[in-house]
């Protein structure tokens, strides 16, 4: 019954020429998998950016790309901590959902830190870039300290 009604609505919307997006309930395991993917993306950008920040690899313009990736990746943090998604081998701690205000502040700090890093990269001053990278790392580590299971690396 529900399906048929949805189908009818889509049909009406299609007739009216509206674009339709059916918002599905994301399964916990998929939410967790998506979260890990985003975190892995962030890790990749940070690891690669650090090679340039440390002076081990020249910047041929790629640093701005990594910075942009970090800004969009941290913006997505708001969408990847679905309640109930700490499943399988998830390292997400219950404190994420028990202390939502503290967690939101930690995410905001990470987002602001990546924006500051992007601005520093645009500015081109290597000392400022290094400092911004450091405080970005601090925001990552600080959040992991409170909200991620401690694990061996």
């Amino acid at each position: 019954m529900q399906l048929r009604r949805t189908g009818a609505l889509i049909g009406i919307a299609a007739m009216l020429g509206l674009s339709v997006q059916v918002a599905a309930e994301t399964l916990a395991e998929d939410a967790k998998k998506y979260r890990v993917s985003i975190m892995t993306t962030l890790k990749g950008h940070i690891g690669a950016a650090s090679m340039t920040v440390r002076g081990l690899v020249d910047d041929n313009g790629q640093l701005a790309g990594h910075a942009a990736g970090l800004v969009s990746g941290t913006a997505e943090l708001n969408n990847i901590f679905q309640e109930g998604s700490a499943v399988d081998d998830s390292e997400a701690l219950p404190s994420i959902w028990e202390q939502p205000e503290k967690f939101a502040a930690a995410m905001k700090q990470a987002q602001e830190a990546t924006v500051a890093f992007q601005e520093a990269v645009a500015g081109g001053d290597s000392e400022a870039i290094g400092a911004a990278f450091r405080s970005m790392g601090k925001s990552c580590g600080g959040c992991h300290d409170d909200f991620r299971e401690e694990h061996d690396h």
């Binding site: 950008h45 790392g137 580590g141 992991h144 690396h153």
Partner: peptide, 8 residues
């Protein structure tokens, strides 16, 4: 080295 940050 992989870009992760330690906490704890």
């Amino acid at each position: 080295p992989d870009g992760d940050f330690t906490g704890g």
